[in-house]
Simulated assay, not measured.
Amino acid sequence: MTMTLANAYDGFKRMFHLEAKQPPAPEPLTRKPLPMVGLFSKLTSEQKAFVLNYKGSENIGGSEFKLKAE
């Protein structure tokens, strides 16, 4: 008889979620840095140094394609 009551009580607890769940782990305040995946990350060290030291014109394309200021 006590076994049947214990089984019924266990079923009741599971059905109505009376058992305390563990809280989820807290999220870290600072994320780990993600690896670089852009074009700059694919360059060699010589290419990166050249790009960072470039002092020439940054215009791309012909002057006929420039937007006109209104």
Rank of each mutant, 00 (worst) to 15 (best):
11 G>Y: 13
15 M>K: 14
21 K>Y: 04
16 F>C: 09
16 F>D: 04
36 M>F: 05
11 G>Q: 13
16 F>K: 09
44 T>R: 11
12 F>R: 00
27 E>W: 13
18 L>A: 10
16 F>R: 06
20 A>V: 15
33 P>G: 00
45 S>T: 05
18 L>E: 11
12 F>S: 01
32 K>V: 15
17 H>I: 07
7 N>C: 05
30 T>K: 05
9 Y>H: 10
35 P>C: 00
27 E>N: 10
33 P>V: 05
36 M>L: 01
8 A>K: 13
20 A>F: 10
10 D>L: 04
20 A>R: 15
18 L>R: 09
17 H>V: 07
39 L>A: 02
44 T>L: 08
43 L>N: 00
32 K>Q: 15
14 R>H: 12
13 K>F: 01
19 E>I: 11
26 P>Y: 07
9 Y>I: 09
35 P>N: 00
13 K>M: 00
35 P>S: 10
28 P>H: 01
8 A>F: 09
43 L>Q: 05
19 E>T: 08
40 F>G: 01
25 A>C: 01
30 T>H: 10
45 S>V: 03
29 L>K: 11
10 D>S: 14
25 A>P: 02
37 V>E: 06
45 S>W: 00
9 Y>S: 11
21 K>I: 01
31 R>C: 12
28 P>T: 03
19 E>L: 01
12 F>D: 00
28 P>C: 00
36 M>I: 06
27 E>V: 14
31 R>G: 12
41 S>E: 13
15 M>T: 08
14 R>K: 15
21 K>V: 05
21 K>H: 06
36 M>E: 11
29 L>S: 05
34 L>W: 09
17 H>S: 08
15 M>V: 05
8 A>W: 06
19 E>V: 12
12 F>E: 12
43 L>A: 01
17 H>K: 06
10 D>P: 08
34 L>P: 13
31 R>F: 14
18 L>P: 13
21 K>T: 03
26 P>F: 08
34 L>A: 09
36 M>C: 04
40 F>S: 09
33 P>M: 02
37 V>R: 04
13 K>R: 03
43 L>P: 03
41 S>M: 11
37 V>P: 10
21 K>W: 04
21 K>M: 11
23 P>S: 02
33 P>Q: 01
8 A>Q: 09
14 R>L: 14
22 Q>R: 06
41 S>L: 07
31 R>N: 15
15 M>P: 01
35 P>W: 01
14 R>E: 15
43 L>S: 01
13 K>V: 00
27 E>H: 07
29 L>N: 10
28 P>Q: 02
22 Q>V: 03
15 M>L: 15
35 P>H: 00
12 F>T: 03
9 Y>N: 09
29 L>H: 02
29 L>C: 03
23 P>V: 10
29 L>A: 11
25 A>N: 10
32 K>Y: 14
9 Y>P: 02
12 F>P: 08
33 P>H: 05
16 F>T: 14
21 K>P: 06
38 G>M: 07
9 Y>L: 13
19 E>F: 02
39 L>M: 06
30 T>C: 00
42 K>F: 05
13 K>W: 02
28 P>I: 05
14 R>D: 15
38 G>R: 12
17 H>Y: 08
8 A>N: 07
8 A>C: 09
28 P>N: 04
40 F>E: 14
24 P>R: 13
